[in-house]
Design a protein around this nucleic acid. Structure first.
Lengths: 200, 200
DNA sequence: TCTCGACTGGACTGGCTGGTCCAGTCTACG
DNA sequence: CGTAGACTGGACCAGCCAGTCCAGTCGAGA
């Protein structure tokens, strides 16, 4: 990642990343080849290695970063303002819709799984993503607290963690079985239980 | 899968499956090769293709079946008798322990992800596994109902689905980040909320 | 206009790996 | 025994694919 990238160079680099992301949304990492990326982005091998000297893994890592950003962005503006029960409901709908549409393909998941521990920094992408995600949920819960909808002694982080786990699991099951029931159940009951905690 | 397998043949076939399972517990599917399996099981290529004429995918599918059985078996006898709050707690402990020990490697997950839609029957393995898993949880919740610990009008399947999602998500996060916090949070809050439903 | 270095094209290579083939051994059974 | 067919060994093949190399082109700044 040198600085000496021309505007043109930067554009090409981005085109490669985005093209690769598209490819990975269609086929699994283990099946996707550099040739696929080349075809999609109208670039040659030398360009790929020009912008990603470390080779495939470096490109894949860049794509992972790109996709991680995308994941959170796709939930906006809802994820950013979870300050009422209605807002939570809307967020739930968006999440369900997004992942139902995405279907079984999960670039992030397979990407990081594939890079694994071999590539330093791969794990960090997920760790950061999860932290940010959970932080957003926690912020939402706190917003409910300050609005007086939830008791102040609620263990916010614990709740947020469980909710995120349910969401992730729902998505995982959706991806491996094709059924969204679990995702819906996890989110609905997660929110419902939050409400119940309010009553308690 | 012909019938004409000698006792010796069966033994070899099983040795291959179990050896392959071991290999996949150490390295990802996309990295594991038939040579790895050969080395581990002291077999030759011709044997692999003798017992799995369809090649690698057929072997992998057999391993997936094997692993799916293993997953549920590892939770016994606890998963089978969730008839008291203490039993649920013990089950929780076993699950957490099992997956913490297993660490980031998840043969089932990557296996099915890798086989994907290309191999018919691959998805069925997960679907069946999830159904059985959820059924066991549902049975446990019903046991609590009949014991009078939970109200009779509780939506059992819905609860079981959400719990399973939380569990799966916790495992997924554990595997991709190395932290078991989410798994613990999901199970603890899942059970706690069940209890709260009892009070309601 | 000249020049340097960023940028691009595409042929080539080397290793890996799934899969094939055939020759040889063992074993259940008549 | 003997033999058919299950079982085993390992050499060999072919395709794929990441990565290399070099010969160019383009463009910004002196």
């Amino acid at each position: 990642m040198r600085k000496e990238l021309t505007a043109k160079g930067k554009a090409t680099r981005n085109r490669i990343i985005e093209g690769a992301a598209e490819v990975l949304r269609e086929k699994d990492v283990s099946v996707a080849t550099l040739d696929d990326v080349m075809a999609r982005t109208h670039t040659s091998k030398s360009q790929l290695f020009h912008y990603f000297p470390e080779g495939k893994d470096e490109l894949l890592l860049a794509v992972a970063h790109h996709e991680a950003d995308q994941v959170l962005e796709d939930q906006q503006p809802y994820l950013g303002c979870l300050d009422s029960w209605e807002a939570w409901q809307r967020w739930r709908d968006v999440v369900v819709e997004r992942y139902e549409e995405q279907g079984e393909r999960c670039p992030m998941g397979s990407l990081v799984l594939h890079l694994g521990r071999s590539t330093p920094g791969a794990r960090d992408v997920v760790v950061t993503l999860m932290r940010q995600w959970q932080a957003s949920l926690a912020t939402g819960i706190r917003a409910l607290q300050t609005a007086g909808h939830l008791p102040a002694d609620l263990d916010v982080e614990h709740r947020a963690a469980a909710l995120l786990a349910g969401l992730q699991g729902g998505v995982a099951i959706l991806q491996s079985t094709g059924q969204a029931d679990h995702l819906r159940a996890a989110l609905d009951l997660g929110i419902e239980d939050l409400r119940r905690a309010a009553a308690a």
